[in-house]
Structures are given as structure tokens and as C-alpha cells.
């Protein structure tokens, strides 16, 4: 069942008087329970692509549809995790998560926020400020905030880029666990990364973009158990294949 459909997507920016083409005719569809990783060389327009899926930007040409409905602005159904965490420094962990739930009554909101803070393993830190947390903990707050709205699609923009390798490895497994354990939402995961191993590790399908203007140059199904064994020949084969496509 097709959840999300990108059709003939094109994006141009005006820089001064020049018009620069960032994305050139990108099309693909995403099915329920798919975890997609989008990889590509830096500056290829990955972030633009994910912001368009989030409804933060609109394509110059083409369309993005979620369950047949056009995505032109952010909706409840699509949420996102940011590379820089995007936590508000003046709010506590609890308040940062509550921000996503402001349309609910106060007591329900707090209860729900606490539930998700627990879920990402941060219970006891509700009253801490972001400046008091490690990078890994900050991203956990980001995750709690994003999934507290029970979005159908969860977008992740280089979510592990600012974490140290050990913390990142931990958090990756936890995201995989969250995704596989929750039969309901989010039921689609879309991640942007420039790390090919991370893409193979996290996803069951990797979409490879070319350098700017971006086109889809590869769409590879990853058939590995989650989490995969990174030393297995199969894993390394996938990595090699994708590396060859990018370079």
C-alpha cells in the first residue's frame, strides 16, 4: 500500500539573478512499514528534499502526495527530527516535548509528554534544560517530541551526525527497536544521511541521489535482519554497491 508518492519533483532556487536547479525530476513511492535512507554527496539537495516532504518547502514542479493528499504544508501526520536537535534552550525537556502537543488539554499533554520521555529512556530528566544534557540525550528529546504526535511518517535529517560514534550506535539500535516494536505509528521512516554504512544499517531500502542537480541514480532494496551484522559479507556488499553508485 503506497503511503507517500513523489512524482517528477523539481526544485529551483533563485540565487541573485541566477536560477539554480537543486533537484531534477525525482520520483519514488514509499510503502507502509518501509524504512528508507536517502544518500547522496554533500550539497546534493537531500535536505531540500526532506524539507519538501515535511511540507516546509514546496517543489517548483511535480508533486508530493501522502495517501493521495497533496503535501503543501506541514501536517500532524508527518514529523521530523533535526540534525541540530532544534531544542528550545529556554524550555525544559518536558516543555520541549509539550510544544508538539499544545493543542491538547494541559493534564493530558503532560501525561503524554512524560510517556514519550520515558519511552526514549529519559525519565528523571523532565525538568532538565537542554544545556545540561549530552548530545545523545538531546537527540532523544528530539525523538520523543517528534513521535509524541504519533505521526504516520517520521523524517530524520542526518539525525546521528552530531553524536559521537558510540552514542550514535546506541541510538540507531533504539530507533530500529522503536520502529519495529510499534505496529502503528510511525509506519514510515525516511532518513537523510551521507554515511553509506549508516544508510544500509538503518533502512530496508536505500535511495541514491546524484550530485546537484539531484536525480535518483539507485534504488536498492536492503534485505538484511535488523539490526544487521556490519561485518557480514552481505552488508559489505550493499555498502560497496552504493559507494560505487555515488563515486
Amino acid at each position: 500500500m503506497v503511503e507517500l508518492k513523489l512524482k517528477n519533483l523539481e526544485k529551483r532556487y533563485a540565487i541573485g539573478k541566477r536560477s539554480v536547479e537543486v533537484i531534477d525530476n525525482v520520483s519514488f513511492s514509499v510503502k507502509r512499514r518501509e524504512a528508507i535512507a536517502i544518500v547522496g554527496p554533500s550539497g546534493c539537495g537531500k535536505t531540500t528534499l526532506i524539507r519538501m516532504i515535511a511540507g516546509l518547502e514546496n517543489p517548483t514542479k511535480g508533486s508530493i502526495t501522502h495517501k493521495g493528499k497533496l503535501v503543501i504544508k506541514p501536517t500532524e501526520d508527518i514529523s521530523m527530527i533535526f540534525e541540530s536537535f532544534a531544542l528550545l534552550p529556554w524550555k525544559t525537556v518536558l516543555e520541549n516535548v509539550e510544544l508538539a502537543l499544545l493543542d491538547r488539554p494541559k493534564d493530558q499533554r503532560i501525561e503524554l509528554a512524560k510517556e514519550y520521555i520515558d519511552l526514549v529512556g529519559l525519565d528523571g530528566f523532565e525538568e532538565s534544560y537542554p544545556s545540561e544534557l549530552s548530545a545523545g540525550m538531546k537527540q532523544r528529546v528530539g525523538i520523543a517530541r517528534a513521535i509524541s504526535r504519533e505521526p504516520e511518517i517520521l523524517l530524520m535529517d542526518e539525525p546521528f551526525d552530531r553524536l559521537d560514534p558510540l552514542t550514535a550506535a546506541n541510538l540507531k539500535n533504539e530507533v530500529l527497536r522503536l520502529f519495529s516494536a510499534r505496529k502503528l505509528n510511525p509506519n514510515v521512516l525516511i532518513m537523510i544521511t551521507h554515511d553509506i554504512e549508516e544508510a544500509v544499517y538503518m533502512s530496508n531500502r536505500v535511495i541514491v541521489l546524484s550530485k546537484r542537480p539531484s536525480k535518483v541514480v539507485g534504488d536498492i532494496k536492503i534485505d538484511l535482519p535488523k539490526p544487521p551484522d556490519v561485518r557480514s559479507e552481505k552488508f559489505l556488499n550493499y555498502v560497496d554497491r552504493i559507494t560505487a553508485l555515488i563515486t
Binding site: 524539507r51 515535511a54 511540507g55 516546509l56 504544508k73 506541514p74 501536517t75 500532524e76 514529523s79 521530523m80 533535526f82 540534525e83 541540530s84 536537535f85 532544534a86 528550545l88 524550555k91 510544544l99 508538539a100 499544545l102 493543542d103 504526535r149
Partner: peptide
């Protein structure tokens, strides 16, 4: 930061909320 501005739109905050909290 752009991501903070994005966050406000992404969460569909009402303007009063965006004003007060962000």
C-alpha cells in the same frame, strides 16, 4: 536558527503559541 523556525511550522503551532513559546 533555521531548524527552530522550521520547528514552529512543522508543529503547526498557532501564532499566539509560536509567539509565546518560540
Amino acid at each position: 536558527p533555521r531548524e527552530t523556525v522550521d520547528l514552529g511550522s512543522l508543529l503547526n503551532l498557532r501564532y499566539v503559541h509560536k509567539l509565546r513559546h518560540v
